[in-house]
């Protein structure tokens, strides 16, 4: 993204960069703050949870350890399968649809885009019973496949949409030139169009992955065996009838969040690299 904005010239007053960096750090800290508190609460001993102190008087790391010994690691794997599976599904289905829609004016194109738009308006929360009944008939209840399908289906609209927008923003002339240069239709797609649409692809990918990673309501309804439950659902069992195991709950949440941030960090670097090596100019 080096050349993406007015490049700060060397004459730029130093003060200004300090202000920019400073405010960016402060904002970053604000966004991290709740999760720092989450971590601090997770390691706070149970009997000091209701003490009004900023920092715990003692650190009890057991809740973070118990996460792994208590079988929740298996739930983390389920979550990973669901998130990766739905992301893959969405990319496989959305890429061709979005590309074709942006490049060809076929008969039901408007109808298709309208369908996508409508889909985007639905959240699975609103129709849990219908979803359950359907997957029950497929015999997919309590399986990873059901969660992959649902998460894929509900995130597809966004992916198609944003990819369509990005493909449309790429001038046809670029493709035509490449085509004339002797790249085949698919060669053009993979060598020219896709790299240019990378920000869109990555956004769609991350969006789906994170949405599937954190999905709760459907998984709660569709998975009944503890071992088949993704982490979000498994964590819910820390909320008991009379008592909440705050440390366990928060420890699990912190652990569930970290892989996503790491993944994002990895992908973001790729995007930046892809762009600096890239072909926008």
């Amino acid at each position: 993204m080096a050349h993406s904005s007015p490049a700060p010239s060397r004459a730029l007053p130093r003060l200004k960069s300090v202000v920019i960096a400073g405010s960016a750090y402060v904002i970053a800290l604000i966004f991290l703050f709740p999760y720092v508190i989450m971590l601090l609460t997770a390691v706070r001993p149970q009997d000091t949870l209701r003490e009004a102190t900023y920092l715990p008087s003692a650190f009890e790391w057991s809740s973070l350890v118990e996460f792994w010994s208590g079988g929740l690691a298996g739930n983390l794997v389920v979550t990973l399968q669901v998130a990766a599976g739905s992301t893959l599904l969405v990319l496989l289905v959305a890429l061709p649809a979005a590309y074709y829609t942006s490049r060809h004016n076929f008969r039901f194109r408007t109808g298709f885009l309208f369908l996508v738009l409508i889909t985007q308006m639905f959240q699975p929360t609103a129709m849990l019973v219908g979803i359950y009944r359907e997957f029950f008939q497929f015999g997919l209840v309590d399986t990873v496949w059901a969660l992959i399908l649902v998460n894929g289906g509900f995130n597809l609209a966004f992916a198609v949409w944003i990819l369509n927008a990005y493909f449309s923003s790429i001038p046809r002339e670029l493709e035509e030139a490449a085509f004339i240069d002797g790249n085949g239709r698919f060669g053009t797609l993979f060598r020219i169009t896709l790299p240019l649409a990378m920000p869109g692809v990555v956004t769609a990918l991350i969006f789906t992955f994170i949405a599937a990673w954190n999905e709760f309501a459907v998984a709660l309804m569709l998975t009944t065996t503890p071992a088949n439950q993704p982490l979000t659902v498994a964590l819910n069992s820390y909320i008991g009838q009379y008592q909440v195991d705050w440390q366990g709950l928060f420890a699990g949440s912190v652990i569930a969040t970290i892989p996503v941030i790491i993944l994002f960090a990895l992908i973001e670097r790729k995007v930046v690299n892809g762009l600096t090596a890239g072909s926008i100019k």
Binding site: V93, A94, M127, I131, E134, G153, F154
Partner: peptide, 20 residues
Amino acid sequence: WVGPAIVLIALVVLWPVVEM
């Protein structure tokens, strides 16, 4: 190109909507 997307949407999203 577009068919798989339509199938997935119909299956996962529209069906429960009709139900609702």
